[in-house]
């Protein structure tokens, strides 16, 4: 089943976090292990399957600012904590939450951002930069026009001021640039292949033992 076509058909303007990651994973981009559940029992089963600690997030297309809406419970380390978190998320007074995402907790040691936008003149463009809260504060980012050659992907990593974050700093493993390049090239290709996708944010893309993994993702559709 095609995630994008289906979402467009039902009139969605964005994919949920989980759908976004399913789509990205189909294109070879590493994402967190996660399951959507609608009952407390299933939340516990999912957590045990994924392995503690886990993160629980309110799930749904409309829920794109989960931190601000208090719809995230991180670092849940036991069955009791999962049950309590499930109850809390599904009884939010401001918003109806019917489904909950139970997700592998990735601590990681660095946060990057990668994304896709469409320029009026040049078409799909891929972004790379410092992730998490630094994305907006420092705007330390670079762009390339799709399709990206491998050399473009490699060069755009070197274009940011904070490029040393990719090195073996403070005893951390260096970031696997080859895998990062694969992701950047894939994202550009997604932009060329899927006209209905207007924008993509993968933020943060965390680094775990030198390997990137998409912890949050948003696919914005062109569905006017």
């Amino acid at each position: 089943m095609n995630i994008i076509e289906e979402a467009v058909k039902r009139g969605a303007k964005t994919l949920s976090e989980h759908e976004s990651k399913l789509f990205l994973a189909e294109h070879g981009i590493p994402v967190t292990r996660e399951v959507v559940v609608s009952t407390e029992e299933n939340a516990v089963l999912a957590a045990e399957d994924i392995g503690y600690p886990v993160v629980l997030k309110g799930s749904g297309e409309a829920l794109s600012h989960k931190t601000e809406m208090n719809l995230i419970a991180i670092d849940m380390r036991s069955e009791a904590e999962v049950r309590e978190a499930f109850q809390r998320l599904t009884s939010n007074p401001e918003v109806t939450v019917e489904e909950v995402l139970v997700q592998q907790m990735v601590k990681g040691d660095r946060e990057l951002v990668i994304g896709l936008t469409r320029d009026d003149q040049f078409g799909p463009c891929v972004m790379f930069g410092l992730g998490g809260i630094f994305t907006e504060i420092l705007e330390d980012i670079s762009f390339r026009v799709a399709p990206l050659r491998r050399v473009d992907a490699m060069e755009m990593m070197d274009d940011i001021r904070g490029k040393k974050i990719l090195d073996a700093v403070r005893g951390k493993a260096p970031v696997d640039r080859e895998v990062l390049a694969d992701i950047l090239v894939s994202l550009g290709q997604i932009g060329l292949d899927h006209e209905k996708i207007r924008e993509i944010d993968i933020n943060p893309l965390k680094i775990l033992d030198g390997k990137p993994i998409a912890v949050d993702a948003l696919v914005v559709l062109d569905n006017e």
């Binding site: 303007k13 964005t14 896709l116 936008t117 972004m127 994305t135 924008e199 914005v220």
Partner: peptide, 12 residues
């Protein structure tokens, strides 16, 4: 009007 950070930072 853009929804993502990526698009808001990709000015001309």
């Amino acid at each position: 009007a853009v929804k993502s950070h990526t698009a808001s930072m990709g000015g001309s």
